[in-house]
Amino acid sequence: MTTKEWIKQKQMNTHILLVLLSLIMIYPVIWWIGASLKTNAELSLPNIFPSVPQWSNYVNGWTAIPGHTFTKFFTNTFVIELFSVAGTVISASLIAFGFARVKFKFSNLWFSMLLMTMMIPSQVLIIPQYVIFFKLDWINTYLPIITPHFFGGGGFFVFLLVQFIRGLPRELDESATIDGCSTFGIYWHIIMPLIKPALITVAIYCFMWTWDDFFQQLLYISSVDKFTVGLALRLFMDSQSAVEWGQMLSMSLLSIIPSVVIFFLAQKYFVEGIATTGLKG
């Protein structure tokens, strides 16, 4: 066997191994898809896919909660996502620009304190945050979920963007200053276009984490007409004496589609943002 043939054989074996491992990884999803098309009686059978697919599970599941449809719940969730992602991208990039490019007193100390907030368990903050939002009369609104995203969105996002901005040459700022550009102008016209991969990475993380943040939604939202998809799935089980698991699984399957679609559409920028964060230019 020649060296070229040996390399091709090795590559083929590697691809076969990766395909087998991929099938093992996606098996739960395949089972999930099949189970969403089954009746309750057929769920106990060992076959992955039903003998007769119950496409009506998706139609009936969409309107299974009395007086409400999942159209409302998806709309509510997307409203939260829109403001949360926009707030995080704008505020985190602005704060990161300040730490990375603007000289001010005790900047290293403040940045260290920012990093320390990443080490605080979220469970420690539950009661203080709830008391603050209760006194502001924000309970049963989206404000407790959305507002924190307009104040940096968390230390992780600021840290990620700071590392990315520090990798950009400072000569760009100096050239813009000579041309009469203000500090905010440098941020908006120079830095923001160059950190697009990192911003998309932040947006994807924020979208997925907010979408999956069931606990805060459960803690602050109590009206059914304001429920998100996650709360609606929980209500799905509570509103039926005998749960139609096929319908339940079909709605839960639909609930992950937005995150999957957004990840694959922005995968190129996501990988680029992660790969280049922290590298010096």
Results as ranks from 00 to 15, higher is better:
7 I>C: 05
10 K>D: 12
13 N>T: 09
16 I>C: 05
20 L>V: 15
20 L>P: 12
23 L>A: 11
24 I>R: 09
34 G>W: 03
39 T>N: 11
41 A>Y: 04
43 L>M: 08
48 I>V: 09
59 V>Y: 15
62 W>P: 01
67 G>L: 01
74 F>T: 02
76 N>F: 04
79 V>A: 13
84 S>Y: 10
93 S>I: 02
95 I>N: 10
102 V>P: 00
121 P>G: 00
123 Q>I: 12
124 V>W: 11
127 I>Q: 00
129 Q>R: 07
132 I>V: 14
134 F>C: 14
135 K>C: 06
140 N>M: 03
140 N>H: 03
143 L>A: 13
144 P>C: 13
147 T>K: 14
154 G>K: 03
155 G>S: 02
164 F>T: 12
166 R>P: 09
168 L>P: 03
185 G>V: 01
187 Y>G: 06
188 W>I: 00
191 I>W: 02
192 M>L: 15
192 M>N: 13
193 P>W: 03
205 Y>Q: 06
206 C>A: 12
208 M>N: 14
209 W>C: 15
212 D>A: 08
215 F>D: 05
223 S>F: 10
230 G>R: 05
234 R>K: 14
238 D>E: 02
245 W>Q: 01
246 G>W: 00
252 S>E: 12
258 P>T: 11
268 K>D: 04
272 E>H: 01
274 I>N: 02
277 T>F: 04
280 K>E: 12
